[in-house]
Nucleic acid binder design. Sequence first.
DNA 1: ATCGCAAACGATCTTAAAGGGAACTTTAA
Length: 566
Amino acid sequence: MNNSEIKHSLKLAGQLMELHGDNPFKTRSYTSAADVVGGLDVELATLSEKEILAIDGLGKSMAANIADLLHSGSFEGLNQLMDKTPVGVIEMLGISGFGPKKVAVLWQEGGAETLDDLLTMCDQGKVAALKGFAEKSQETLRAAVSFLIGNRFRERYANVEAVVATLQTLIADLPSVEQCQETGQTRRRLEVIDQIELLVVAEDFEEAREQISQLTGLEVDERKSSPMAWYGKHVGVKPPIKIHFADSDSAINRLIETTGSIEHLNLPTTDQTSIKSALKKGRFVSEEAFYQSIGMKPIVPELREGRREGDWATQDRLPQLIEMSDLKGILHNHSTYSDGKHTLRQMAEHCKQLGYEYLGISDHSQTAVYANGLPDFRVKQQQEEIRQLNEELAPFKIFSGIESDILTDGSLDYSEEILASFDFIVASVHSGLNMDIQKATDRLLKAIHNPYTTILGHMTGRLLVQREGYPVDHRAIIDACAETGVVIEINASPYRLDMDWRWIEYALDKGVKLSINPDAHKMDGYKDMYYGLQVARKGGLTANDNLNSMNLAEITAFFASKRNKK
DNA sequence: ATCGCAAACGATCTTAAAGGGAACTTTAA
C-alpha cells in the first residue's frame, strides 16, 4: 500500500466515524492523520514503526493502523465501521456539498441506503421534510446525486491509462492473438472515459475470445458479447470494456472505425459521402493511406472528434500540434510555503534537472487559510529565497508568482503594493463555488480586468466525475481575455483539465494564449503536464499559442510587458 | 486519538458562506 491509499483509508475511517457520531476529537485525529500522511514526502512502507511514531500527528493507534494497512490492506477499526455501513451509504459520502452529518440524517432518519433511494426520496418530497433539509437542499441534493449516478461508470483518463496498457500486453501475449491495440475513447485521449476499447487481430476469434475471458481480473458479459466483440469488465475498473476482433486484412479498417467518434465517422468527404462509407470501399494498409485515399492529410487520433478536423485535413491546414518537447518551463506550482509537499529548493532543482529553463512558483494567497496561504511577510520571505536560489541556479530561473484567490467580489487577495511585487499572478476561484452563471461570470470578468492578473486558473472549478464546475459564459470570458491579454490556463491535473479543451478553438480564434500548467503540489506533479498536453492537442493547440512554450528570454519579456501595461 | 506537560490528565479552535429556521449547524476551500 502506498501513502495515497493509506491516506484514503484513514480519511474514510474519519468520515465513517463522523457518520456514526463518534467522538469528534477522535474523528478529527483520523482526518488530520490522513492529511499528515498526504503531506509526507517519504513512503510509509519504507519506515520503521519507531520512525512512524516520531511523525507529528501519528500516535500509537495510528501507527498500528498503518502497520495493518501495509500488511493486509485494512485495519480492524475500519473493518468494523464498514461492516455497519451499507455500501450505498459509503457511496453517499462522495456527494458534493453534503458531508457525513447530512448523510447520517438521510440514512438513519430518511431510510435511504443507495443513491437511487435518494433520487426517489427527492421526487416524493421526503428529503425536504427531514430535519436540516428543505426545498433548496432537496434540489441541490438531487443535482449532486444525479451527477454521481451519471458518472457511475465513467472514470478519469489517468485512472484507466495503466489498465489499458496492462490489458494490451496481456492480451497480445495470448497464443491465439496476433496483435492488440488500444482504440476508442482512450486512444482519442478523452478526459473522461465511459468505455474502454481494444482491437484484437486474430485468425480464430472464438479461441481468442475464450482465452481473453480466462484472464484474471476480467469478467465476460456473455449476454452482450457476440462473435465480433467481447464485452465485459475488469475488477475495480468503472468503465465497461469492449474488445473488437478483426483479421489482419481488415485490421486497419476496424481500427479507424473504432477510433473516431460517431461525429468524426460521419464527417463528409469530397465525393459527397462520409468517412464511414469511404471505409467500406476497400481494405487499407495504414491509417495514412486511408485518409490520403479520401483526399485528406492524416488525422491524429486525438483530433478525431468530428469538429473542424475534416476541413483542416482536406485543405492541408492541420495544426502542428504541441508536443512535450515544446514545453520550456513549468508555471503554477506550489511549495511547502503553502500546501505543497516539497520545498522551493526541491521544486526548483527537480525542474531544472528535468531540463526546463524556468519554474513559476505560485503558492496559495492569504485568504486560503486552510492551504496555509501566504500573508504579506511570508510573500517577502519567499521572494528573498527565490532571489538567492536564482543566483545559485542560474541560468535557470524561478519566477515569483502567487495563485491569488479571486474573492467573492472578484478582487484579488493582496494590496496593490504586494500584487506589484510578483512576476506573474494566477487568479483562481477556490471558495464560494455555489454561483449562478451571471455571478460567476461577473466575478471572473472582474478578475480578468484586474491589471495584475496574468493567467486565469482552472476556469470552472470542476472536478471530473466528482463535481460539476460552476457555470460560466465561456465566450464572454474568452473575449475579455482577448481584450486584456490574460492567458487562460489548461490546468493539467487529471482531476480538472480545466478550461475544457472544447473551448480552445474559440480561444485561439480570438488570439488568446493558453498555458499548460500542472498545479503541482509535489515534484512528481510535474508529470501531470502530460495529461494537459493530451487535451490541449485535442483542442488543436500549437506551441506558438502556448505560454510555457516560450523560452526564458521570451517569457521574461512577456511578463515584463504585461506588467508595464498597468 | 494525539500532544504536551508532567507523571494521569486536560485541551484539542480556519473560516466564511449557505441554508434553515429563528440562533446555529454543516460544509468545503
